[in-house]
């Protein structure tokens, strides 16, 4: 971020092509007054390459610079993770029991054995795939509805008055609390789990979209209108991209809540899925499977939010240069 800011182009003083006409009376020497463009130009000649990145340095040098900048961070991250696993290993190996009981908790080694074991069969993969499908369906639905409704509610007072009270009444109810009703509402267990996932993701996406729309700079809307944009064009070309950074914040938060909701729903009413797998392991007293389930859930969540960050970065390339709010 810093590096790109340093390269912000300041070419106010460059020659301005056709629009700088040579006015009459230039020959006369001037005592004081305003600086002429030409004077400024002569005083501060700009090499044409000023806006270009610096010339490439040898690869080993760049590698060294990269290492100096990033290596301490990576080393600390590795220490942090190793420390966690080590603590786990020691606590479980010596079966620590001081109010917290590690007596039944599997060791990291036992969990690793389980990983090797489940990778032999298809059963575990099926659970993962089913959970991912539910997340995808619920989240996609929440995205489409949340962004769509959010744009309308954020933009139009009427829509706001019409939809917001009902949505605000539903919002405080956690997705998990919907589980019993959801089972009754939907004909099929699969649909009801997708519905729970949807409920979890919907509200963060909706609320962030609404506030993103309301935060779009008014001068951009006015600029759009006096360039001839009608309402629909304004919505598509100005309001949607203007709200995009906050919409992506909503998507990232929504993805997190979607996973929470999915796992809870699977634990309560599922027959498949990684949440069900984890809960079933508890019922069947296969403790290393519990931990494997937990770790898998964590990794899948990480993967999904990473995916959203990646899509956000690709969809909003201008944020790389933004001086304000670029870090989202």
């Amino acid at each position: 971020m810093q590096a790109s800011n340093l390269r912000v182009v300041d070419e106010d003083r460059e020659a301005t092509g056709l629009f700088v006409a040579a006015p009459a009376g230039r020959e006369h020497p001037q005592p004081t007054g305003l600086a002429r463009t030409e004077d400024v130009l002569r005083a501060a000649p700009r090499p044409p390459s000023a806006a270009l990145p610096p010339p490439p340095s040898p690869p080993y040098f760049r590698l060294l610079a990269w290492a100096r900048q990033h290596l301490p961070g990576y080393v600390l991250a590795a220490c942090s993770l190793i420390g966690l696993v080590l603590a786990w290993h020691l606590a479980t190996k010596y079966k620590l029991d001081f109010y917290i009981r590690f007596t039944n908790i599997p060791t990291p080694g036992e969990v690793m054995d389980k990983v090797a074991q489940v990778s032999q069969s298809k059963r575990f993969g099926t659970h993962v795939v089913l959970s991912l499908r539910r997340i995808f369906l619920g989240f996609a639905l929440a995205g489409v509805l949340g962004i769509g409704l959010g744009l309308l509610i954020g933009r139009y007072k009427l829509m706001r008055s019409l939809f917001f009270p009902a949505l605000e009444a539903l919002r405080p109810i956690p997705a998990i609390a919907w589980v019993p009703i959801s089972i009754m509402l939907w004909p099929d267990n699969e649909v009801s789990i997708v519905f729970i996932t949807f409920i979890g993701a919907f509200f963060p996406i909706l609320l962030n979209t609404v506030s993103g729309v309301q935060a779009v700079d008014g001068v951009l809307l006015r600029a759009g209108r006096c360039l001839g944009a009608k309402e629909s064009a304004l919505m598509w070309h100005v309001i949607l991209p203007g709200a995009a950074p906050q919409i992506f914040t909503g998507l990232a938060v929504g993805m997190g809540v979607a996973w929470v909701s999915l796992i809870a729903a699977e634990m309560i009413s599922g027959q498949f899925g990684i949440g069900y797998y984890t809960w079933e392991a508890y019922s069947l007293i296969t403790y290393s499977e519990i931990v494997l389930g937990m770790i898998t859930i964590g990794l899948l969540g990480l993967l999904c939010s990473g995916l959203i960050r990646l899509v956000g970065k690709a969809a909003m390339p201008w944020l790389a240069f933004s001086t304000q709010g670029g870090e989202r």
Binding site: V8, V9, D10, E11, D12, F19, P317, W318
Partner: peptide
């Protein structure tokens, strides 16, 4: 091109100085 800004056609506004932004604003209008 007429306004001497063609070299920056693919820049994003946040990459430009204030004066450049206003020149582009004038050209856009």
């Amino acid at each position: 091109g007429l306004a001497g800004l063609l070299a920056f056609e693919n820049h994003y506004p946040d990459q430009l100085s204030g004066g450049m932004k206003q020149r582009v604003g004038i050209v856009r209008a």
